[in-house]
Design a protein around this nucleic acid. Structure first.
Lengths: 351, 351
DNA sequence: TTGGTCTATGACTAGCTAGTCATAACCAGT
DNA sequence: ACTGGTTATGACTAGCTAGTCATAGACCAA
């Protein structure tokens, strides 16, 4: 067991009081050069570092921020996590990383986090049921829901304007000449996916296109692959497909090209969401929406700088950031008429 | 400031002693049903959860494990991190995530980690200089170096048998008929990359092939892309390329196909390392090596179950795991003779 | 009733650091 | 030498929980 040396141990060895040891580590404290040197020499010999554990008890501040996250297979989340770690670290706080299975609730980990007296919880991905929210309010832990709009006195949220993006891509497809449309969803309980669909569908309807093929996915490459096959299997193939995220879109492109023997973008336009690094790869050149991870994280961290009690009303507890469309080759042009025959996919398997 | 309720608060409200509150949360403790109910009701009202902070002071055990990691842009690392989080969590420990820039030293974060009295440090990616190692030994914090062979009384390591894999892929290329070879490295200070190259080069030499083109990369897609262009730019193009990781390999494939207008695998065989999800994508079908993340993490966690003092010799502090070759289409066949003319890449830009 | 056993409860304490307060040491000016 | 002010130091304490120990109360058998 790694028994850490205490300031008392150092004091004994240096022949001074514990107070002097403590002072040696506080800049600006009233201590003589001579004593400080004695202390630091003794500390070095014992491998002493001041503990912040007692301070947590006294000050009720742990500088620990719990980040509850899952789905790191999605590079966007990996990126967001790294951004969180970096920003928290540089503001002198530590990140307690708590894994959750996608869609799982915070409930089961709450007691443990409370036990460590975390200063705040950032919940990306975990479900925030009203019951959980109530429990959090009782514990008085500020919670920032990342990318999911929930909000009460103790829960605030930072998210992207998904509906707006859905509307934008609809007009983008129309401007490129597409006249039939498909959408590949995320998991049914994903509000982000639902909002993207809503904006997409509403704008299409407003422009007079009510027909929208929808295939279900769960945010993974394989789902996009299968969804594309399913969409093209029963005739009436769409000329453009908007996918709830980039992994789905890339899966769809691979299915369209390698199984259906169609071309992207000549035969089908495909767009995604997130702008993960793979979207820029030469094989895909995927049109997508950038979510500014750095900004989102910065806004999230701002959220718990000020006590939730300071906030005047709930609206202040909600931040919505725009997503920016990045146009790439995957939606550059349709070559109507030259469309190749759709390959037989009756025996379609997974990739 | 989220002032957590204390057991004394609960005791006062419930009209019992602090001891009884504490006992109410310990299964098997000597407490009457009636009292426990009173306590739990009061606790619920105040939103009380026992703090583990005082226990850390008394028992010298924080159940905190620091994981120092960077390079999450590489899906392998994201995967490993998630695995760590999950396994640590299910063994009742918490993960303190510390970000580092690739290749940076542990030194700068060490005082902070010591301040939180972490039970152990897992270092993936961070450099472990002898000086740092000495500091760690003084602090008496066990350190497990993940995927880098370092080892002294307080530092143990878990890594992959990289040289072996390099040898294996050399023979694989030879068996597929390749007679010229290229290698794309990781950053110069990456031991993993160096070992993979070493095994690859030695085996080729042993089989009579001394000529090996080497291009430098830094583990990213863009580097693989540029490395491939550079390799083919000055004539003498290799028939097979082994890349230090999958991102490099995928970048190389994209460059070979979209810029050089050559085919993979017909004109060039390409293999990578890590088996990230993208390696299995239909567009690439990349031959690569699986590192069993789950097993590596399990072995790493085992490392700090037993005090380093218990270990009888240094050899016990080093675990090397095999990497398994996954053959996919990217190395399936060369069609010698039919090789297309290499496109002009004189004005080659990034992807 | 008495003595013994068992259960339930409360008082007390270890563990460590940063801050408060009191005091000791030192210095300069008179 | 003495006063007043400054600087350096030590004693003491808050903060919270799980464990130890002592004791009060309940219960049973004799």
């Amino acid at each position: 067991m790694p028994r850490y040396a205490s300031s008392t141990d150092v004091a004994r060895l240096a022949g001074v009081s514990q107070s002097s040891v403590s002072r040696s580590y506080r800049p600006g404290a009233s201590i003589s050069q001579r004593t400080r040197e004695k202390v630091l020499a003794a500390a070095d010999q014992l491998g002493y570092r001041p503990s912040i554990i007692p301070r947590i008890m006294i000050s009720h501040r742990s500088d620990l921020i719990a980040v509850v996250i899952g789905g790191l297979y999605n590079p966007l989340y990996a990126r967001v996590l790294e951004e969180f770690a970096t920003q928290l670290h540089s503001s002198g706080r530590q990140m307690l990383l708590v894994p959750v299975d996608s869609g799982h609730s915070l409930d089961s980990v709450l007691p443990r986090l409370a036990g460590y007296r975390v200063d705040a919880i950032v919940s990306a991905l975990a479900v925030l049921s009203p019951k959980t929210a109530a429990a959090l309010a009782k514990l008085r832990i500020p919670v920032i829901s990342f990318n999911t709009k929930v909000s009460n006195a103790w829960v605030t949220s930072v998210s992207t304007d998904n509906a707006r993006a859905g509307a934008e891509i609809a007009d983008h497809f129309l401007a490129r000449g597409a006249r039939s449309f498909g959408f590949v969803t995320g998991p049914v309980d994903s509000p982000a996916s639902a909002e993207r669909l809503k904006g997409f569908r509403r704008t299409l309807a407003r422009r007079g296109f009510k027909n929208l093929r929808i295939a279900e996915g769960r945010f993974r490459y394989e789902d996009g692959f299968q969804a594309a096959l399913a969409m093209f299997a029963c005739g009436n193939a769409p000329e453009s497909i908007f996918c709830a995220n980039d992994l789905l879109a890339i899966g769809a492109i691979d299915a369209i090209r390698t199984r259906l023997r169609l071309r992207v973008p000549e035969d089908v336009l495909v767009a995604g969401f997130d702008d993960i690094p793979m979207a820029g790869w030469a094989a895909y050149e995927l049109t997508t929406f950038v979510q500014d991870a750095s900004l989102m994280v910065r806004e999230t961290i701002k959220m718990f700088q000020h006590s939730p009690i300071v906030r005047r009303d709930l609206a202040e507890g909600r931040v919505t950031l725009p997503a920016r469309l990045v146009e790439r080759a995957s939606t550059s042009r349709l070559s109507r008429g030259s469309r190749a025959e759709i390959a037989d996919v009756s025996r379609a398997e997974g990739p």
